[in-house]
Design a protein around this nucleic acid. Structure first.
Length: 116
DNA sequence: AACGTGACACAGC
DNA sequence: AGCTGTGCCACGT
């Protein structure tokens, strides 16, 4: 599990790796926000780092499922083509309109596991 | 070794 | 109401 402590003095946890694990855990047809991931890892890490992590996201990490709190596809510009992100999302059943996830609240997935 | 950058978020104005 | 400024912390130069 990725539920390790945010930062251990002795250990040097790869923030990125943790982020990747969380992102990989995002169910198909769902999205999450940078802030949610950051919060899950412990508010220590600012949401910006999540973005950086995505920047280095290796293959297998559905970065397209990570959007900003606004539901905006802020990172689409970083994909091979600006359409890639939207295409991937729509491919998973997520409707995207005007670079924004439709019913973002509905498809939003909380890394904590959608606690009841 | 320091400064600037960055796919965000929140408080203030 | 939206826009501006500040905080967050690792990575790149």
């Amino acid at each position: 599990m990725v539920a390790r402590k945010a930062f251990e003095p002795e250990t040097r946890p790869d923030f990125f790796r943790d982020v990747y694990e969380v992102v990989k855990l995002i169910p198909r047809g769902r999205v999450t926000s940078y802030g949610a991931i950051a919060a899950y890892l412990g508010t220590k890490m600012s949401a910006r780092m999540v973005g950086w992590a995505m920047n280095a996201s290796p293959a297998g990490v559905p970065a397209h499922r990570v959007v900003n709190r606004n539901g905006l596809l802020t990172g689409k510009h970083h994909f091979p083509t600006p359409y890639t992100m939207q295409q991937l999302l729509e491919q998973e059943g997520i409707k995207v309109e005007n670079d924004r996830v439709v019913d973002f609240k509905r498809v939003f997935w909380d890394p904590s596991g959608e606690l009841p």
